[in-house]
């Protein structure tokens, strides 16, 4: 079968097509990651893709790099171990909103705090898709899930705010609709020597969409286009940003990276 160069270079063709539902945004985000890696010209043997559990975490099974599918919420813990043992590797973590923010929330804040050089991409579909549509930390308040039949009473978690507050040095958000933008943001994340957190807003037409009458995949993609605004525009014209989700680069700073700091300790003893 003839496939595109992006697919040929970055994917395990024999594992495709993937199991995600028709119109699932995860495939778009996974393709964007592959393009970003290709654009950066990274040595594929030096790239490791790590995931936890959930729909999002199926991705490494399809990606032709060194890959690791780990336990629920623990992708960042495994990734930290990989990076500490071989700091020259480019470690990419693919996780979901439930995986990263609920069961893996503590790993997330501490990976941010350490500023370890990992590039984390959260596929945020606002729901636990794989297990049947339970509400997640990013399900909007009052929206429905199979475990919130009368509406979700929890406050929605803003993961970018969390990552920034916890100390990540690169924080950005875009959506499956803005595929070119998220590709660029992932490239920036790969460039950043420190913890990069990129939230990719996905669409789940099967569970979140159906439970909340959001229409089909096309309707949900249109919403991503219409209900989001770039943070640069929002800053200039706040009146346009009302009720919309901000996308773009939220934070970018330089701080000493964790493995470099650790190496200094090792050096200290080698000199004695």
């Amino acid at each position: 079968m003839k496939v595109s160069n992006v697919v040929k270079d970055n994917f395990r063709e024999d594992k495709l097509p993937h199991i995600w539902c028709p119109g699932c945004g995860h495939g778009i985000l996974m393709h964007a990651i592959a393009r970003a890696v290709s654009n950066k010209g990274l040595d594929r043997d030096k790239v490791v893709v790590v995931s936890g559990i959930g729909c999002s975490s199926r991705a490494p099974g399809y990606m032709n790099f060194n890959t690791l599918h780990t336990t629920h919420g623990r992708a960042l813990a495994f990734a930290t171990g990989i990076k500490m043992s071989q700091p020259d590797l480019h470690v990419i973590v693919i996780t979901g909103d439930g995986d990263a923010a609920a069961i893996g929330g503590n790993h997330l804040i501490h990976a941010c705090r350490r500023n370890i050089d990992l590039t984390t991409i959260v596929f945020n579909n606002n729901i636990y898709g794989m297990t049947g549509g339970q509400y997640s930390p990013t399900t909007p308040t009052n929206d429905y899930g199979t475990t919130a039949p009368y509406g979700n009473i929890d406050k929605t978690f803003d993961l970018c705010d969390l990552a920034k507050a916890a100390g990540a040095t690169y924080v950005a958000r875009s959506t499956a609709y803005h595929a070119r933008i998220i590709e660029k943001l992932i490239e920036n994340g790969l460039d950043n020597k420190g913890f990069s957190f990129i939230e990719g807003i996905s669409v789940c037409p099967t569970y979140y969409g159906r439970k909340n009458k959001k229409g089909n995949a096309v309707d949900m993609m249109k919403s991503l286009k219409e209900d989001t605004i770039d943070i640069r525009i929002a800053k200039k014209k706040p009146e346009l940003a009302e009720g919309k989700m901000l996308i773009g680069e939220f934070h970018n700073s330089e701080e000493e990276e964790y493995t470099a700091r650790y190496d200094k300790i090792i050096d200290l003893f080698e000199k004695e």
Binding site: V7, P17, W20, H26, G27, I28, A179, M221
Partner: peptide
């Protein structure tokens, strides 16, 4: 179409 297809089913070939 290529970058928005979730299933890599369409692309602009070489």
């Amino acid at each position: 179409c290529e970058i928005l297809c979730p299933d890599f089913a369409i692309f602009l070939g070489g």
